[in-house]
């Protein structure tokens, strides 16, 4: 009884604010917290808001490119960590993988900005994409590493005994085996990129305003039903994507 109550209260706490935000995105009133009947006018306003649409487009491109870069690098890093045993600088490498997972984003953003200033790179779309790739690559590595550690290496060895090159064996045997984790890593990287405000604020420049940067500048001016509308769309996108990924992965998890 106590267990069920605490779980129910926990979920209510986690979802209550999100549900309220979604409900009030359909509010007819301009005042976010005063209900004045059902309306989809804020979704219409959103479709007219060119700056918001531009920001969404920038965010999606940054997310696609940085998540793909992060997944490729993260797969390599995971293979290296799981398969190479000890190598010089392994501790440093492990540290560089784990530290960005927990370091405050303000530090990561500031440090990356200083790099671009030192290299004289103008800040914009590409500096932002490289920064997101760097941070999300660490998450991708951890996700793929967990899967790879439990992958039976003798399958890959068998393929090599049968004449595969190491690369061929990896591509034909191991990669399909860890594919769910690679896909999950890509999704995680993409979502983190989509979501990031702090690192983007430091490393992006004129002409590359992302959706969170745009939302943030509007939120600072106060609550606004259009923000509720765009938030609802994002929440729906993520909920559908994560639930689908979960359903795809689920049968594999129930195995031995």
């Amino acid at each position: 009884m106590f267990n069920r109550a605490s779980v129910a209260l926990g979920l209510a706490f986690l979802y209550g604010p999100i549900v309220l935000l979604v409900i009030y995105s359909f509010n007819a009133s301009r005042l976010v917290t005063v209900w004045a009947g059902f309306s989809t006018r804020w979704y219409g306003a959103l479709a007219q808001d060119q700056q918001m649409l531009d920001a969404i487009w920038v965010t999606l491109r940054v997310g696609l490119i940085s998540a793909s870069l992060a997944t490729v690098l993260g797969t390599l890093a995971a293979v290296g960590l799981v398969r190479s045993g000890r190598f010089p600088g392994r501790t440093l490498f492990g540290g560089m993988i784990y530290a960005p997972l927990v370091l405050p984003e303000v530090i990561l953003g500031l440090s990356l900005l200083l790099l671009y200033v030192a290299l004289d790179l103008p800040r914009g779309f590409w500096t932002l994409t490289l920064s997101h790739a760097t941070v999300t690559l660490c998450y991708a590595t951890v996700v793929i590493q967990a899967r790879l550690a439990s992958f039976d290496i003798s399958l890959e060895e068998a393929a090599r005994d049968l004449g595969c090159t190491p690369l061929g064996a990896f591509l034909a045997v191991t990669l399909p085996g860890i594919a769910p984790a690679v896909a999950a890593a890509w999704m995680l990287a993409f979502t983190l990129s989509l979501d990031d405000l702090v690192i983007a604020s430091f490393t992006s420049g004129p002409g590359a305003t992302t959706l969170p940067m745009r939302l943030y500048s509007q939120v600072r001016l106060g609550v606004n039903p259009e923000i509720n509308a765009v938030s609802t769309l994002l929440i729906a996108l993520v909920a559908v994507g994560v639930t689908a990924a979960w359903l795809i992965q689920r049968p594999r998890r129930t195995g031995p």
């Binding site: 986690l14 999100i18 979501d195 939302l215 939120v219 609550v223 938030s231 994002l234 993520v238």
Partner: peptide, 15 residues
């Protein structure tokens, strides 16, 4: 909720 935008979840609390 962890996959849902951090900024949005904090914004929800303002209202």
């Amino acid at each position: 909720p962890f996959w849902t935008s951090f900024l949005i979840r904090i914004y929800a609390w303002i209202a």
